[in-house]
């Protein structure tokens, strides 16, 4: 049986592995068929290491993140982890437009069993998002930047072992970008980060290790700079 095993699987022998990915295959079926997006991907992320994912457009970075966040199932292979992994940071799809920011935050807090610390969660989101009175207005009236602020704040209101970020720092104005980066930096040591970003600066700033996705394969680098080097070499050709 393939799929995603939570804790206590017998294969999970390596103690310092945070996430272990084994023989991962993924392709999208549909009217246009599809080649393997990920083909026999294997890697192990050690405990407490933040990873930057690099690769050209369409290399499967977002697909891999979705699989890690368990939003999708691999066709073959497994992801073994007993860490709490976030949903992709800054995800806006879950917002109900006719409901206010506060109501949307309450919803997410409730599904995470945060009923008893609702105030704390709401306060922390409000503090981060800094959208003022709009917090009590329907989300459909928000600009995309405001939505991003709300979504980002929401992700940070919960304590995860691993945060997943798919270009979450690319949206919003400069002030927001700085704030987002700072929020990530504050969490170094407590949580890890797996991120996709086309901004080399942010990657170098926040991640130690790297994964280069190339032709459906994932190549692990203990040092992010090596991954970036190989990636840049491949596109300059």
């Amino acid at each position: 049986m393939f799929g995603i095993d939570a804790a206590n699987s017998p294969e999970n022998e390596v103690d310092d592995a945070m996430i272990e990915v084994q023989d991962l295959y993924k392709r999208y079926h549909g009217p246009f068929g599809g080649d393997w997006v990920l083909k026999d991907v294997n890697f192990t992320i050690p405990q407490g290491v933040s990873v930057g994912l690099v690769g050209r457009n369409g290399a499967g970075k977002s697909t891999l993140l979705k699989l890690l966040a368990r939003m999708d199932m691999p066709d073959k292979g497994r992801i073994i982890t007993d860490s709490k992994i976030s949903w992709p940071i800054g995800l806006k799809g879950g917002f109900q437009g006719s409901m206010t920011g506060r109501q949307n935050v309450k919803f997410v807090a409730r599904i995470h069993g945060g009923d008893d610390r609702m105030h704390q969660i709401i306060d922390s989101v409000q503090d981060f998002a800094e959208i003022g009175k709009a917090f009590d207005q329907p989300v459909k009236t928000y600009s995309s930047g405001m939505k991003s602020r709300l979504a980002f704040g929401l992700s940070l209101a919960f304590d995860f072992d691993v945060y997943i970020s798919d270009e979450a720092t690319a949206v919003g104005d400069t002030a927001f970008k700085e704030k987002a980066k700072k929020a990530f930096r504050d969490r170094v040591g407590k949580s890890s980060l797996i991120m996709v970003s086309h901004s080399v600066g942010i990657l170098k700033d926040l991640c130690q290790a790297g994964i280069w996705l190339h032709k459906g394969q994932a190549i692990w680098y203990d040092k992010l700079t090596d991954a970036l080097k190989d990636y840049e070499k491949s596109i300059s050709k």
Partner: peptide, 13 residues
């Protein structure tokens, strides 16, 4: 928890 959250959400909507 999910049912409670969804119920409140659907009802408000």
């Amino acid at each position: 928890h999910v049912w409670h959250a969804l119920f409140m959400r659907e009802a408000t909507a």
